[in-house]
Design a protein around this nucleic acid. Sequence first.
DNA 1: GGCGCGAGTTCACTATAGGAAACAGGTTTT
DNA 2: AAAACCTGTTTCCTATAGTGAACTCGCGCC
Lengths: 210, 210
Amino acid sequence: MTETNDQDAALRIASGRKPFVEPLRLGERLREIRLANQWTLEDVSQRTGLARSTLSKIENDQISPTFTAVQKLISGLGIDLPQLLSPPRQQARTTGRRDLTRRGHGELHPTPTYEHELLSCELAQKRMIPFKTIVRARRFEEFSEWVRHDGEEFLMVLEGEILLYTEFYEPLQLETGDSIYFDSAMGHALVSTSDEDAVVLSVCTRGEAA
Amino acid sequence: MTETNDQDAALRIASGRKPFVEPLRLGERLREIRLANQWTLEDVSQRTGLARSTLSKIENDQISPTFTAVQKLISGLGIDLPQLLSPPRQQARTTGRRDLTRRGHGELHPTPTYEHELLSCELAQKRMIPFKTIVRARRFEEFSEWVRHDGEEFLMVLEGEILLYTEFYEPLQLETGDSIYFDSAMGHALVSTSDEDAVVLSVCTRGEAA
DNA sequence: GGCGCGAGTTCACTATAGGAAACAGGTTTT
DNA sequence: AAAACCTGTTTCCTATAGTGAACTCGCGCC
């Protein structure tokens, strides 16, 4: 079948590249996805436009699909490429961590303008940072400068009303239950506009591999 | 064929899965990389083991490379697949996007057990998926199988009370205001235990580049 | 100018991927 | 229990990806 010829290997090694042509059990993975969704080959055929036979061969590693075929797969199955390729390692993680925070039992971090309550701070390695904030600030002038940090932020108003100032937009009035998603590298700041100090829930993404 | 479990479906929809048949200028991208490194076709041929002619045709979109060919490319050039596919390089950062969702104006995705309301679904490329859920389920048996998906999930109870079933732990009672963070690859399922259906806010991480 | 040389492209051929249909178990129908 | 059906595999055949050789163009050189 697909035999990597010796010369290729030699060249690759000589050029100081990793000698591995990672096995990349694509067929295996495809079958996994298919069965997980309880699809038959025919179902997948309908979705992707590839012949039943072709799919069978791909699953059994009898052929190496064309890139266009791979595209049909990912668009037809509604998955993305990393998802199609990554499963083996994802499986290795089998993590089952969890971190409970009872109401009012987060870690408090008061500042002049905000009163933060960090949630789920037991967990060390996580990709999101959730926290509840009581917005003490009442006027934009109370902020010495824009709040900004890498990544993205999601925010929902739990109680009261706020005014969201952002660097590139007009101030936005948010009522209880409203939510917003924004790039947090853009300067931002919150002030309460309700009688009581507003409470908001925020979730920020964590630093990434650029 | 059974539809995928609820949250997966929600995630897929949220991930901007349009019928778009991404043109995916792979050839263009390859040439870009090659020239950036000042490699000739011959150089790349040596590194990858693919014929000069083949590389030429790939760069000019005259053929659609086999998946094995793509593997030779990525291993030979020492790049990874996402890198090869994400030509418009996310380098265009410092963005200032935002996406407001007024209370009750999210995108509804009802299922037998959950009633999802996707928030901030205007934004296409984002790293978190926030949604509000009314938990209709009352008994664990209403779920045909565990809900699970890659990544991590943060969840806060906004109204009512729920019981959180997870694959590796005892069921956990959560009251209004309680929150939890967990690996969502671990099977999980929610049921309401209050008189009224409970409402929870969830934020999931998105698939990442391996 | 002719000549050599190294870049990319094109040609002609072989290897292989993709598709239609036939085949081989199973399961359900009658 | 045969018939009708599904599902996945296998068999051809055609379309196309991959290859080495031939070709083309540009550039420097004496």
